[in-house]
Simulated scan of single mutants.
Amino acid sequence: MATPFAILLRNHHAGGRAVVDLFVRAAAAQRDRPHGAVLDQLAREAREDLGFDERVMRRLGVRPSWPQVVALRLGERVGRLKPNGRLLRRAPLSDLVELEGLIAGVHVKIAGWQAAQVAGVLEEGELAELEGLLDRARSQAERLAQAHLAAAASVLARQA
């Protein structure tokens, strides 16, 4: 039977893979927006962040839950089919919705890493690395919040 920490790692790993997919898609779709370069950088950082989780999982002998990874990654793709006011083209509101999803994903990552800090399972070097990753994740949340406000002003102000 898997430990609660192993289950947490699997859950966050699967969610992290889906969030990386969303970062990549948002960065590609919003490349010509003022915050496109920020999303590109955040996509690279998200891949690196996932690497930390995978290294801890390998050290602890925790295997990813591939059905969960596939389900969440598929869910991210199905989420693209949401009604957005446009049938064949990307709707302006999509930028805003993607950024909101990314903000939520980064906050879940922060919460998972904070839980890992107090679990008593990480080694000293991992805890030190995690401090830096948490600082970066907080910066990611702030950069996403700024991009979100800019996108909201751009998308919603046109409709007023």
Rank of each mutant, 00 (worst) to 15 (best):
I7V: 15
H13W: 10
A14D: 02
G15S: 08
G15V: 05
V20T: 08
L22M: 12
L22A: 10
F23C: 02
F23W: 08
V24W: 00
R25I: 05
A26Y: 07
A28V: 10
A29Y: 00
A29E: 08
R31F: 06
R31K: 12
H35G: 06
H35T: 09
V38G: 05
D40N: 11
Q41V: 10
R44S: 14
E45M: 11
A46K: 09
R47N: 03
E48D: 07
D49T: 02
L50M: 08
G51T: 10
F52A: 07
M57V: 03
R59W: 00
G61D: 11
P64G: 04
W66R: 08
P67K: 03
P67Y: 02
V69I: 14
V69A: 12
V70N: 00
A71L: 09
A71M: 04
L72H: 03
L72R: 14
L72C: 03
G75K: 10
R77F: 12
R77G: 13
G79W: 11
G79C: 11
L81A: 12
K82Y: 03
K82N: 10
K82Q: 07
N84M: 13
G85E: 10
R86C: 07
R89S: 14
R90G: 08
P92A: 01
D95T: 05
E100C: 06
E100I: 02
E100D: 11
G101F: 09
L102W: 06
L102C: 04
G105V: 04
V106W: 11
V106T: 15
K109A: 15
K109H: 14
K109I: 00
A111C: 03
A111T: 10
G112Q: 03
G112E: 10
G112L: 01
Q114C: 07
A115V: 11
A115C: 05
A116M: 15
V118A: 12
A119V: 01
G125K: 12
G125S: 13
E126K: 08
G132H: 13
L133E: 10
L134T: 02
D135Y: 12
S139A: 15
Q140R: 13
A141V: 03
R143Y: 05
L144F: 12
H148Q: 14
H148M: 11
H148N: 13
L149V: 10
A151Y: 00
A151Q: 02
A151G: 06
A153M: 09
